[in-house]
Amino acid sequence: MKMTSTQHETQAATAATGEQFEPKIIAFCCNWCSYAGADLAGVSRLQMPTNFLVLRAMCSARVDPEHVLRAFSKGADGVMVLGCHPADCHYIGGNYRTRRRIALLKMLLEQYGLDPERLKLEWVSASEGVKFQNTVTDFVEMIREMGPNPLIEAEKQHKAERAKYGH
């Protein structure tokens, strides 16, 4: 069906290295563009890693900073917010608000000791199945290289220490 389709090779890599870190990623997709783009990737049978779970929102502007922080605090290694391209928003200007909120939220993440790169905002239209595939694939790879969510690691250590000293 498609002339261009890339096959990812994570399985081969896993086999070679044995224990490979598998990031957990939450992807918020707006209903009208990015969720449709993700569906198109499926209809076009574009292959990509399994490490992400999509949450549908009517508009990317519905994504509350609280949702992103919640995902990180519950162990997400990366969060993506995908919306309509600028000027394409189904709700006129929601994505402009998303853009501002995500910029602020990135600053906040830094203060929590999280690399702001772990949060990604991208525009994916309903006809950009390939862009959805590439965005997901690249993000998964990037997070894989960055390693696990340090908040969770720190918490684990903290728990281990508390256990050690018998608290």
Partner: peptide, 13 residues
Amino acid sequence: NIRDQCSWIHQNE
């Protein structure tokens, strides 16, 4: 959505 966003995009896994 276990078809468009799962079985179809992870056919080899």
